[in-house]
Nucleic acid binder design. Sequence first.
DNA 1: CGACATTTTGATGAAGATCAAACTGGGTGG
DNA 2: CCACCCAGTTTGATCTTCATCAAAATGTCG
Lengths: 254, 254
Amino acid sequence: MFQKSSITSLIRKLEHCALLSPEDKRALESVCGSVRQLPARSILVTEGDPAQRVNVILEGFACRFRLQADGRRQMVGLLLPGDMCDIRVCILKHMDHSIGTLSPVRVAQIPHESADWLMERCPRLARAFWWSTLVEESIAREWVVNVGHRTAFERMAHLFCEVFERLHAVGLTRGDTCDLPLTQSELGDALSLSAVHVNRVLMEMRHNGLITLRNQQLTIHDYPALRNVPGFDPRYLHLDGTNDPSFRAQEQTG
Amino acid sequence: MFQKSSITSLIRKLEHCALLSPEDKRALESVCGSVRQLPARSILVTEGDPAQRVNVILEGFACRFRLQADGRRQMVGLLLPGDMCDIRVCILKHMDHSIGTLSPVRVAQIPHESADWLMERCPRLARAFWWSTLVEESIAREWVVNVGHRTAFERMAHLFCEVFERLHAVGLTRGDTCDLPLTQSELGDALSLSAVHVNRVLMEMRHNGLITLRNQQLTIHDYPALRNVPGFDPRYLHLDGTNDPSFRAQEQTG
DNA sequence: CGACATTTTGATGAAGATCAAACTGGGTGG
DNA sequence: CCACCCAGTTTGATCTTCATCAAAATGTCG
């Protein structure tokens, strides 16, 4: 019912922090046994619920969002394969946001006892988990900057760069293209733009030859130019692979 | 050179997660020995620097901010007395944002070895520290919502509610008033608004009898109405005092 | 008193929201 | 196989919010 390949993304991601030993990987796999498959647009975690499990996205796109008083929803983060959410969230009485899927998603749900056990037993893993929560926090701050200080065009360019870099970090890009299974209206939720305006910006980008987005596939034709639009600086993603002194082989491939 | 009263705010804040034992408090005090006094508008931590210490704000207001390519700065978080920043930040190679003071600030700087020692020795403290970083993350997400989905008027009302609640949680409000030592231009940085527009919204709020803001003092005349403007829901601050099962006495006063 | 930061006011312009409607394309059922 | 449906995309027109520019008023501190 679960394949080894499930957690490839997770391992690739964590190895941006520290190289994992075979035992680390085995421990990780043993804990990711219970995998659920969810359809697109389903709810994984509901705001206000008691926090129970650690969720690891194995495949597909999901998002964190907050519901507004007026019923609208604001995305406050994107969850990609390899993202492990809320390692310590059991400390809180209730979830302060919801998590929903954007595409079909395969997710491993780890009881927090198992997570605690894992962190006690494998210090390298523990370190990598903390690293990944710090990165998420950094991304959240970048989103504040994004919706706060950038034009629609810059925002969208920034989001595309972020998604591409994050997917690249877990080996899920093919050349200059990657998945992006969001409707224009969902892009609007992420960027705080109306669907109409998303559409216009998108056409402008296509027209400029920067990207194409069709069939849930994003292709970046001119990455330097795209990066240049918002002044994208990938350091906030902490993917430079030197977070751990013991990190050596940065370019090994699976 | 340091008074017991220094860490009152910190203790009051952490006790929203779990009641601390006298030993916990003593350990905390012993570690906050080295206190620095900084003038307003000084830099505490610079983006890109190696992450070294844990900073605890004892007195005054500070903020996290990111510098933009165009030199403008976007505030991505407010640090109030009792806020302990970046407990685990030593995992990252470099800081992904800067921290600066808004008013004169007294800050305790804890070497991360001491922080680790503290967390090993006092599990209740460790738990409270994690709680506080999760709360900060939650606040960061709320800021995304704030600048993303709310009008200038709602944004400002929301920020005022947040600051008041957070200060109230550490016993730093007097009746319906609290400190707010930000210029209108700094408020603009926090809310992603121009200083001019901040001014106009402020006047409207005053005119509506909601608040007054003078001499760095915020007075909220009609809290229910103010809360109602953005639909402020304080749950994201996790201050309900029930995060820990052992929590009992919620209303004890120092 | 004078220099300087901050607040206030006015006028204008631009980015993006909103409303409305047409167009596209894949999937379903008759 | 076609007609239909529905979600998503595209286009147009109008309106609101807020930024920007400019300048006057106020306050503060040496």
